[in-house]
């Protein structure tokens, strides 16, 4: 039922810095009882140095909401306000050795409480731009509100548009029916029919005829393509490097969060699709481990 890391469990059972804080001079209240998550973050800031001397929390919420609050107070203690504001929700999740996708919003709430508390200390008004809906894509933790907004803002029409813009639906694909329902709701009509199999799009007949590349040019092109894909992977704490090119077979090594990730196959599939487009020929992308097996 609960796929919590040891660290999350430990912070839930033994929360750090829980309860009211005497002499707090920055307080941030965020969350909503309707959603079942609410957090009060209390800071005692040294006015001379702007160093956070103490940070306490009170949280109404699930196990990971309490653990995220506890982690947040530990992370920001003894940091200056400016340093603390650089803490992202991903930092909170990383500190806890990760959160299940359904629970990532707990770390977002922590980050927002921090912004609210700092704003309160500085006498500013903090405005929330928070919007959250039901979790649709569990692979990439994308909620309905985000998908709806992206469809509207970019006039997206198809399932694959939504995946390209938000990543939602790019994994196990179990959420495709829900995403299509959102497309219908926003656009007021059925999404245009897509080819039943994605492979049809990349069939060689559809690709324009390209001049034949030399081996050197071809490998350079593969390298350039991978290089262009790396920033996106690095954003998700992963990476890719080229290992070997053997005719139509291209071997790559995935590292960091990509390695052993449930999305590894999808990532490799995405790389392959890109390389097929760029090279104008059918190639097969394989993990480096497959090379070892040869």
């Amino acid at each position: 039922m609960w796929d919590y890391s040891e660290k999350v469990r430990e912070h839930f059972f033994n929360p750090r810095n829980a309860g009211p804080l005497a002499g707090a001079n920055g307080v941030g209240d965020v969350g909503s009882i309707r959603c079942g998550d609410a957090l009060r973050l209390m800071l005692r800031v040294d006015p001379e140095t702007e160093i956070i001397e103490a940070a306490h929390f009170q949280t109404f919420g699930c196990g990971s909401a309490i653990a995220s609050s506890s982690a947040l107070t530990e992370i920001i203690k003894r940091k200056t306000l400016d340093e603390a504001l650089k803490v992202s929700n991903q930092d909170i999740a990383d500190y806890l050795d990760g959160l299940p996708p359904e629970k990532m919003h707990c770390s977002v709430m922590g980050r927002e409480a921090l912004q609210a508390a700092v704003a309160n200390y500085r006498g500013e008004v903090w405005r929330d731009e928070h919007e959250e809906g039901d979790l649709v894509c569990k692979c990439f933790a994308i909620d309905a509100a985000m998908i709806e907004r992206t469809i509207r803002d970019n006039r997206l029409q198809t399932m694959s548009d939504v995946t390209n813009y938000t990543k939602a639906g790019g994994g196990c694909s179990a959420c495709h029916e829900k995403i299509e329902d959102i497309l219908i709701a926003v656009n007021g009509r059925l999404p245009p029919a897509e080819p039943q199999r994605q492979i049809a799009k990349t069939a060689p007949a559809a690709a324009p005829v390209k001049p034949r590349l030399s081996n050197y040019q071809r490998i350079r092109k593969i390298e350039e393509t991978l290089e262009a894909l790396r920033p996106a992977l690095q954003r998700d704490h992963g990476d890719v490097t080229l290992v070997e090119v053997d005719g139509k077979r291209i071997f790559v090594a995935l590292s960091g969060a990509c390695q052993g990730c449930q999305m590894e196959a999808a990532t490799i599939g995405g790389i392959q699709q890109k390389l097929v487009e760029v090279l104008g020929e059918l190639v097969q992308v394989l993990p480096a481990a497959a090379l070892a097996r040869d």
């Binding site: 929360p15 309860g19 969350g31 909503s32 109404f60 903090w126």
Partner: peptide, 25 residues
Amino acid sequence: RSLSPYWQGDAPAAGPGLSFEPAYA
């Protein structure tokens, strides 16, 4: 309840400055 911002001591938080009304709904 000792962790909950809606709770104070041994009763629900209430009264001016005590009741908890966080931002956003």
